[in-house]
Design a protein around this nucleic acid. Sequence first.
DNA 1: GGTAACCGGACCGTGTCAGTCCTGATTGAG
DNA 2: CTCAATCAGGACTGACACGGTCCGGTTACC
Lengths: 163, 163
Amino acid sequence: MLRLSKLTDYAVVVLVRLDAGTQVQTSPCIAATTGIPEPTVAKVLKSLSAAALVTSQRGARGGYRLARPLEDIPVGEVIAAMDGPITLAACVDGSVTECESLALCPVRGRWDPVNEAIQRALSAISLADMREAAIPAVFRVPPDADLVRVPRNAELGHSNASR
Amino acid sequence: MLRLSKLTDYAVVVLVRLDAGTQVQTSPCIAATTGIPEPTVAKVLKSLSAAALVTSQRGARGGYRLARPLEDIPVGEVIAAMDGPITLAACVDGSVTECESLALCPVRGRWDPVNEAIQRALSAISLADMREAAIPAVFRVPPDADLVRVPRNAELGHSNASR
DNA sequence: GGTAACCGGACCGTGTCAGTCCTGATTGAG
DNA sequence: CTCAATCAGGACTGACACGGTCCGGTTACC
């Protein structure tokens, strides 16, 4: 279904959440305000930090902060940070590992225009666009909710219900 | 990595192969000329037939035929036929199963513009575009190769070598 | 009637992913 | 100086989807 991983979905939520407030935010805090389990939030933030989409501050009173405003983060970059480079087919990216039956492989490079089209589409949409997209005001996060300090195990029961 | 399934890749190969010649082509024949294992080709063709991208003729001397010229088949339709509807996130399609923590779920509808952009990109590219895209002449299939009748087990060793 | 081909399933091994946990390294506060 | 809070970077595991195969049944041509 061409679906992207759930981690990428979380990453967008986390990044939008991180946009509220200029203070650094800790991963337990973000977990509490988004409803995503804390270890998962930590994992997402680590990946985002590795991709230089957020900056981290270690130690006590540390946390995470957006490296750039949401307007400057295309959604394609988030996907690439979480799921790796965007390549539809196997024979597309730099790894020219040569399909074994080379004389018969008719796939070679065939998906390139499709990949480019998707890349373009994903580069044209920024997280700021997604932030405001079709979300009722009820779901908007209050801009100062990041200031609440919550204890470690404040779980909100976001364990998936659909299985 | 936003990768599409290998079956979809095969589907494009099979459809392009099916474009050569006006005769119906059997799945063993297509398997032999493309190097894809025969049962897999059969599975792909069944899905394509269910999606009305190819028409089938049963019985002896039966086979498959393109339902439309390649120019009229956008690649997005092939992906939808093989992998189901194109939806990036879980909360997007018609199944409004309401994320459990509804008041906190900030994802709702957020991916819609991204989905639409991708849909547009995939609708704009037809299989005819992919047929000619960046393929050295060596890999082009000869237009009359479909006439050869091959025995059932003519395998070409297309089992993946990279593992 | 026999044979060749499609039809519609069921079936299973494998790989990937979501999610958790653990052990360090770092830094501010007391 | 010591301690606690926080990030860093792994390893690990269970669940699930996917690729691939196979089988019995049906249809149509010779």
